[in-house]
Every structure is written in structure tokens, then in C-alpha cells.
């Protein structure tokens, strides 16, 4: 069984702070981490490998050379192979262009049964690359996977909905996107860390994966950032006026409704 796990190195957005005076982001000291949902994707692949030791797991990412560190972490967790797609020509890709590049990299890897990835990355929160990758590879998809089971090549998953879940069945090959309810990612093992330290991570550029340059990178991307800005600083709030508890509660609730908060 061959599994591919698509991962992304992201800045830990929980650690980002805003400069209160200039209203700009303070990036210093913000660590780069393996995206949370992607860690769940990798864990599910590793669980399959725990059961079936002949399973082969390849992690793949697109990013700058520093993303190698995250791939080493994946190797240390138990992945068998790691590929970094890195090329200036791939930079600035939106989700459409990113899925084109990943699809090209995965085609080069050859045969596979399951592609796992995280539902979304914490720096963009789009949740688009999983489905778009599935489309580019013409594979069935299930997003928001919170439970996974496999029997004789037939996969049964639970897909989370806002108010419950769906039980879905599908065959391999397919793309599944993981949410954190799926599992609890393991730590790197000591043996894994030794292995990762001297592991030879493959680095492929745009030419290596044979991707059409008109389909990747900033200029090829259908969407562009037009403006970006920080929200205005939150002003001091209001004291809700009222003579009785009922008046105060009424004033408060009706303002919440007016602002679509409830």
C-alpha cells in the first residue's frame, strides 16, 4: 500500500502579535511548524503503517528550502520518504496554482492508493487545496474526515458536518482531508530523529516535475491580493444603559442581533 501525505510548513499564527502602535504584524520569534491538520493527515497514514508494515508513506510539500526541516520532522515521526517541491517559479501560487504543482509532483511519484492531507492550513485557512488537488488528479475526495477505516480496499469514513456527520464509502485511489478529531498525532521517535538527521530529502524544481509554467506561480494564479490591511483597533466598548436588569439585558441582546452576532 502506498500513501502520499501533502503537508505544509506554516508560521504559528497563534504566536503572531500586532504592533499596537503601527498596526503591523510582529513576525520576529514566530516559529515555523508543521500545519496542525497535516499532522493529523500524517498520523492517519502512520496508523495504517502500524497495522500493515509494508505500507510506504511519502510526504510531499511545496515551499522554500527551509521547509526541509518540517519534512525531517515528518521522517522522524515515521514517514518513509520526503519530497520538497521548491522553485522560484512556484512562488506566490494561489490554491489553484498550488494544486497544479502538487498534482505534477504526485504524478512523478507514480502509483499510490491514498492521498491524505489536512483540511486547511492555519496561515490561509482556505481548505481549497485538498479538493483542487483531487480535481486535478481526477480522484474522488472526502473532506473533513474525522474517522477512517479500511477493509479490502474499501474505505469507510465519517465526514464531519456542522451538526453531525455523514458515513461515506469509496474505493482507492482517493484524496482525504483530515481534521483534528481524526486522531492525535504522535511525537517524533528517537530512532526517527536519528534517521531524519541524515535522511536525503528529494528536492524537485519545476522542470523536474514537468509542470506547465503557465499553470504555476504568482502570475499564473487566477487570484491576487489586491490590498491587505489590519483591522482598525478595537475601541473601548459601551456600557449598556438601563435602569433595570431587564432593560440592560434587552439592550444588550438587541445590539447583538443588530450586528448579526446572534
Amino acid at each position: 500500500m502506498k500513501i502520499i501525505v501533502c503537508v505544509k510548513q506554516v508560521p504559528d499564527t497563534n504566536e503572531v502579535k500586532i504592533d499596537p502602535v503601527k498596526g503591523t504584524l510582529i513576525r520576529e520569534g514566530v516559529p515555523s511548524i508543521l500545519n496542525h491538520d497535516d499532522a493529523n493527515a500524517l498520523e492517519e497514514a502512520l496508523k495504517i503503517k502500524d497495522e500493515n508494515p509494508d505500507t510506504h508513506i511519502t510526504v510531499i510539500t511545496m515551499g522554500p528550502p527551509q521547509a526541509k526541516e518540517m519534512l525531517q520532522e515528518c521522517i522522524a515521526m515515521g514517514a518513509d520518504d520526503a519530497v520538497l517541491l521548491s522553485d522560484r517559479a512556484l512562488g506566490g501560487s494561489d490554491t489553484w496554482a498550488t494544486s497544479n504543482a502538487l498534482a505534477a509532483g504526485i504524478r512523478k511519484l507514480g502509483e499510490y492508493d491514498i492521498i491524505f492531507t489536512g483540511r486547511q492550513a492555519i496561515d490561509g485557512d482556505t481548505a481549497q487545496v485538498g479538493p483542487q488537488l483531487a480535481e486535478k488528479l481526477k480522484l474522488p475526495q472526502v473532506t473533513y474526515v474525522r474517522e477512517f477505516a479500511m477493509d479490502e480496499g474499501m474505505i469507510t469514513v465519517k465526514r464531519a458536518l456542522e451538526n453531525g456527520y455523514e458515513v461515506l464509502k469509496l474505493k482507492t485511489p482517493c484524496v482525504l482531508t483530515a481534521i483534528k478529531e481524526l486522531n492525535c498525532p504522535r511525537y517524533m521517535s528517537v530512532r526517527g530523529i536519528y534517521k531524519a538527521a541524515k535522511f536525503d530529502i528529494k528536492v524537485w524544481n519545476a522542470a523536474d516535475i514537468g509542470v506547465d509554467l503557465a499553470k504555476v506561480g504568482l502570475d499564473a494564479s487566477p487570484t491576487n491580493v489586491y490590498k491587505s490591511f489590519t483591522p482598525a483597533k478595537k475601541g473601548k466598548g459601551v456600557i449598556v444603559e438601563g435602569d433595570t436588569a431587564k432593560e440592560i439585558a434587552d439592550g444588550f441582546i438587541s445590539d447583538l442581533k443588530k450586528k448579526h452576532i446572534i
Binding site: 490554491t95 489553484w96 485557512d125 482556505t126 481548505a127 481549497q128 486535478k136 464531519a160 487566477p222 487570484t223
Partner: peptide, 23 residues
């Protein structure tokens, strides 16, 4: 941007080769 809309829209946008902005 429901669990259904976020599953469906990217698939359609990729098939049409057009842009999609999330959330």
C-alpha cells in the same frame, strides 16, 4: 462557507480553472 460549500466550491473552481476566495 459551510462544510458542503467548502467541499464543493474548490472542486468546481478547479474544474473551471478559475479563482476562488475562501471565507
Amino acid at each position: 462557507a459551510t462544510h458542503i460549500g467548502r467541499d464543493l466550491a474548490p472542486r468546481i473552481a478547479a474544474r473551471l480553472d478559475t479563482g476562488l476566495t475562501a471565507d
